Simulated scan of single mutants.
Amino acid sequence: MERNLETLIAEPWADYGLLDSGHGRKLERYGRFRFVRPEPQAMWAPAAGDWRADAEFMPGSDEEGGGRWRFGGQVPREGWPLGWEELRFTASCTPFRHLGFFPDMAPVWSWMRGMRPKSALNLFGYTGVGTLALSAAGAEMVHVDASKKSVDAARANAALSGMADRPVRWIVDDAAKFVAREVRRGRRYDGIILDPPKYGRGPEGEVWKLEEGLAPLVADCRKLLDRDGRFLFLTVYAVRMSALAIGELIAQAFADLPGRVEMGELAVREEARGLLLPTAIWARWRND
């Protein structure tokens, strides 16, 4: 396997854009609203010195993170609708500084749709934009997240997109436990989206730690794919880990299948200067 790193770039679209970045922060537009959030990787100077925003996330002072939103504009606390291609979904200011979806995943959604899986599993599926992107392309989906609130939000996004009747199984469960049961059932999927957090808890208090749980989870996901499978796409955020490391993990797990393994970074293109702000690392197995 050649170890070539690739950057998947999220370009601005009508309802989202990275306006400016620098000095450890970023200025983004989500529809008609502007937000400032911390961004440690924005080590350069911003293009403009005066940022006008409707809200800013103020990080906590302890090592565990935390923080709060400081609002200056009339941002709807219940959220507001946004779109990507034919999909509609709700953005909102969450307590974890996110806004209800991850715009840097846009090139991943497009790539997965191009792989045309007949069935796919979205683990740690959050509010379901990836699930809906594949469902709209004709895939039968299984969406799994440990948070009932996130799964309810995903179902609401499906309704907002006019896709409430699509073949999607919405499941509140611990991802590792669910995959292990699917292995025992002998299930197979054409594609798997794997977007694990650094740390989390399942619905029954199960503890997830990325460094401990990722390798066995990838091994079980491999058992849900066969020579007719199309892809597994893994993204990793906010950890001291290399794209080469997770690429080698995927390569080892999928060594017995045809196809190839690729890896790299996700990035968002800044509108002010066109520079690339890195956001995550990724690795994928593809069979096309």
Rank of each mutant, 00 (worst) to 15 (best):
C221D: 01
P196C: 01
Y199A: 08
V179A: 06
R166Q: 14
P216W: 08
A219M: 02
R187E: 14
D256E: 14
D220A: 15
A159S: 15
D174Q: 03
S242C: 06
A180V: 05
K209Q: 15
I171V: 15
N157L: 03
E212D: 11
P258F: 08
D228E: 11
R230Q: 05
A159C: 12
A146T: 09
G125K: 00
Y237A: 09
L244Y: 13
A156M: 11
L134Y: 01
G205H: 09
G200S: 10
T127K: 02
R188E: 12
G205I: 10
V207L: 11
A243F: 03
A136R: 11
R188V: 14
I250R: 04
P258W: 06
E140K: 10
D173C: 04
V179I: 06
V129H: 01
R201G: 06
G205Y: 11
D173S: 07
W208P: 06
V183F: 09
K149A: 15
G162S: 13
E248H: 14
R166G: 07
S135R: 10
D165H: 13
R201Y: 13
A154R: 00
Y199T: 09
I250K: 05
R227N: 07
A137L: 04
F124Q: 03
D165M: 13
F124W: 08
G191M: 02
A136G: 05
Y199L: 14
R222P: 13
D173G: 02
M141W: 00
D190G: 07
V151L: 00
D226H: 04
G202P: 11
S242L: 13
A164Y: 08
A175L: 05
G247F: 09
R260L: 12
G205P: 07
